[in-house]
């Protein structure tokens, strides 16, 4: 059974690590979590990004956050990737599977997954 003592252990383990991590966020992944996003399936997409980033050991320079409605509800779930010195990338109609590919190819590999972007969706 999970106990609060275990949580105290997590605190001991992490408190030094957290201090190092601050101000070190080169990439920000933002998932739309308004009514439109939630109804379209944003919750598992967020979860996939949170888990994927940690599974790949990217948590020291990547943060995953949430935002409200950005006005393109028909493209939800929408995920934006911000990186200093680069253009914002907007991924649309995301799924947990697509999130895994974005993490390995774009967040880790540095190559945008063009076919999931809004630019690509508008052309099709």
């Amino acid at each position: 059974m999970k106990s609060l003592a275990e949580l105290a252990e997590i605190r001991e383990r992490m408190k030094d690590k957290i201090a190092l991590r601050e101000g070190n966020n080169e990439i920000r992944i933002v998932v739309g979590m308004a009514t439109c996003g939630i109804a379209a399936g944003a919750r598992p997409v967020l979860n996939a990004f949170v888990e994927g980033v940690n599974a790949q050991g990217l948590e020291d320079h990547v943060t995953v956050t949430q935002t409200g409605c950005i006005g393109i509800c028909q493209y939800e779930p929408v995920v934006e990737v911000f990186q200093a010195g680069k253009d914002k990338v907007t991924y649309v109609k995301m799924t947990a599977e697509k999130a895994a590919r974005v993490i390995s190819e774009h967040i880790k590999g540095g190559k945008v997954v063009e076919e999931y972007t809004i630019t690509y969706a508008k052309k099709a």
């Binding site: 609060l4 949580l7 997590i10 992490m14």
Partner: peptide, 21 residues
């Protein structure tokens, strides 16, 4: 609130390990 008491101000509630817990 109870988790926060244990974690103090050092570790945010949305750290991955805490979320997993």
């Amino acid at each position: 609130r109870r988790l926060r008491e244990v974690l103090g101000s050092d570790v945010p509630l949305n750290s991955f390990e805490v979320l997993q817990w």
